[in-house]
Design a binder for these strands. Structure first.
Lengths: 210, 210, 210, 210
DNA sequence: GATGAATGAGAGTTCATTCAT
DNA sequence: CATGAATGAACTCTCATTCAT
């Protein structure tokens, strides 16, 4: 019926993509205002100023809309962070840049992040299992970070710690910060970032007693 | 209609309390299986092996059930942690015991914690604002931790850092760990706890370069 | 199970009757406050300060309770009016006393009348047909009035009109007054009664042009 | 969501209006058959041959449907009576035409009037107070009649009586007649109207002894 | 006699989805 | 492409009634 980009379908037209982004933007606003459970298609359509049917036309269903919302923001985040991390010289600098840029991105996209969090935590597959928060699903997200830590250890930059555990702690800290960004409008990201960087800097230093 | 304990109502009977706990337990199971959004009263009643109306009889509504679930587990956690933290000697030991006991509690109550997390993140007041995750609402939760850090700084145990920011990072780390506990059945809490304790021990030490 | 007075059952004990009156009184209060539709057994029991089951014990069901409420007030009204009407001398005086005493009774029992009205208009048999407001059901209520008017015509007191139609108009006027009594707390019954009596006095006079 | 006519919303489409009328008609039928209390949306939808959700789609809720039912019939009645009353010459003729046309309208719309009566007497606001039968709410209904009587008195057509009380008696008589129209299929409106007109004609005549 | 607990049906409402226009 | 209309299932909640204690 509808042109698809993935998988193997015809390329989506420009106008088609614009509509999808418009709808996703409306969904983000609605979710961050009334929460995932109350974010009905009717409300999203109203917010976007379009008819309910349009959403069904452009997305295979509510779930696809929500999944797209997540993917889109995730990609945006990666596109923002990757060049910064790569530009940093040395594993320590890369590590701290990873932390810093991630927190900055969250700060700059609070509403989007709020919506993303709600969706990630709530969206489920038809069989009831989580769509995004599965163990396997996490791997691609933290794999680059683990690799970064391993490289730094191999080259003697970092001390002796379990890179997998450390990566998970980092991610949890960042994800927790995302929640805080949503709930606290006055949250001072700069100070928080400084403290977090200092903390993980100390924890990954060579020569730290185990 | 129904006897109430809080506030000012008659005391609830033993059997009444048992039923409430049974219903809450069923809610916990259902939520951790299908998620908050799909945890309908019908499903919860079915799981508990009772009729739908029973829930309405024992609780003022779905929201009260969910709120009770949160309060109950939160109180359980506090009851578990408080004596351990108090028994520890010295602020550093208290701090590390706080971290350790909290993670242990999460580990020992994974299903409950999973459900609690879903409820806390999703439950809203009738006006649409979050029921539990407001800024003000957080204060009572981290206030004791902030106090603990301040005391340790005053007495020279801890170094120079912002106790409020540090407390928030600690809480985010722990809450993140809760999410992990839910998603990863094989999660090794012991190792994770060691790493977290080492990390925050370093970060709060006196003499850490700022 | 339960002792019955009607039909043919054992006589109800004094305490039994007291309970029934207490429950009916509570029902009257509740109905006149929240209306028939919202007058649940739970609310009535709460108002009476008893448990819900008590009502089921003393009445065969909600419908019997409501029916009893109607009958009880109707009998009270008849007991109040009958001696007054009989004491009046002459058909004209009897007729005006009927009007006057009926309106007085309504005035003195506004809450009861309000409840009765709601019940009469709403209570239905299981098949959906009205329990009280059927054509046949009305006959016993206005039959004495028709008879009174006929006697007065035969004896030359009243003029020439259809006694059945006149009786119906009288009843409608009184029933309408009942509604008014409920809705208007400041309603001046004395003045209303005077005007109504004057009106029907003129309308039933001998020699009125047809 | 749905186009609205009142207040300030977009104009309702023709088809929209037709659906609303169809649903109201079904509600009227159901109410006059099983009564207000048993007139559930399910039954009304079934009678209209539509799905339950359609009612919610076209009306803001059950209460709005019921309120619309009342308003619609009330407006119809006013539209029927007004030109007839205005066309009558002289206050006496206007007064009798008011009575006559009102009773005729009731006669011609028995089922509708039956439903209207049930709704007016039962519909309540969320706080429990009656929606239509309040004292203030009555004013607009009888105000024109009071005015008519006052004009007739000023111009010497009518005798000396309290026009407010008289108007109330007239309304109660008519409303009572409505109830009768519902319950008595064989009710002879012509005869009833004659008798009522004769009665009120006599009661309002100049020179009637007070 | 009286109670609290439980039932199960049915209430109004919301919602994702489908479809003719 | 877009819309408004309609569906039917699922939701929370209320209720009259029953029953063991």
């Amino acid at each position: 019926m509808r042109p698809e980009n993935e998988p193997g379908g015809r390329r989506r037209s420009f106008i088609e993509e614009a509509r999808r982004r418009q709808i996703i933007a409306a969904a983000v606003e609605v979710i961050s205002e009334v929460g995932y459970a109350s974010a009905s298609l009717a409300r999203i359509a109203k917010r976007a100023g379009i008819s309910k049917g349009v959403i069904s036309y452009h997305f295979d269903g509510k779930d696809e809309l929500m999944a797209e919302l997540v993917v889109q923001l995730y990609v945006s985040g990666a596109e923002f962070m990757a060049p910064l991390v790569e530009a940093a010289e040395g594993w320590r600098a890369k590590f701290l840049t990873y932390l810093e840029s991630n927190l900055q991105f969250i700060d700059a996209n609070r509403t989007y992040v709020a919506a993303l969090t709600e969706v990630v935590l709530n969206l489920r597959k038809p069989d009831g299992t989580p769509r995004f928060t599965s163990v396997d699903g996490e791997e691609p997200v933290i794999a680059p970070l683990i690799e970064l830590l391993r490289e730094g250890q191999a080259d003697g930059t970092f001390g002796d710690f379990d890179p997998v555990v450390m990566a998970k702690i980092v991610r949890d800290t960042i994800d927790g910060a995302a929640g805080r960004a949503i709930r606290e409008p006055d949250w001072d990201v700069g100070r928080y970032t400084d403290e977090v960087c200092r903390l993980f800097d100390l924890a990954t230093r060579k020569g730290s007693a185990r």
